[in-house]
């Protein structure tokens, strides 16, 4: 049975591949940023600002 072809020949990314990768990276970054902001806001709402004044 033939297995996967592992004889890859490395090459430089094409312009289109670089462009689409950059666009995907920006989209992932924005999504993660939005998620962080969302979790921060929900934490403040659910626990209240008093969480910042909790004695150590």
């Amino acid at each position: 049975m033939a297995g996967p072809d592992n004889s890859f020949v490395p090459r430089a990314l094409t312009e289109q591949e670089l462009r689409s990768r950059r666009a995907r990276n920006i989209a992932v970054g924005l999504a993660i940023g939005a998620l962080v902001a969302l979790f921060y806001a929900v934490t403040i709402v659910k626990l209240g600002p008093g969480i910042l004044r909790t004695p150590l």
């Binding site: 072809d5 090459r11 430089a12 094409t14 689409s20």
Partner: peptide, 17 residues
């Protein structure tokens, strides 16, 4: 950056899309 020739799955496995 480097990529590989081959079909779509190979490109995906190599991380290029």
């Amino acid at each position: 950056s480097f990529a590989t020739d081959g079909d779509a799955i190979a490109r995906s496995q190599a991380g290029y899309s």
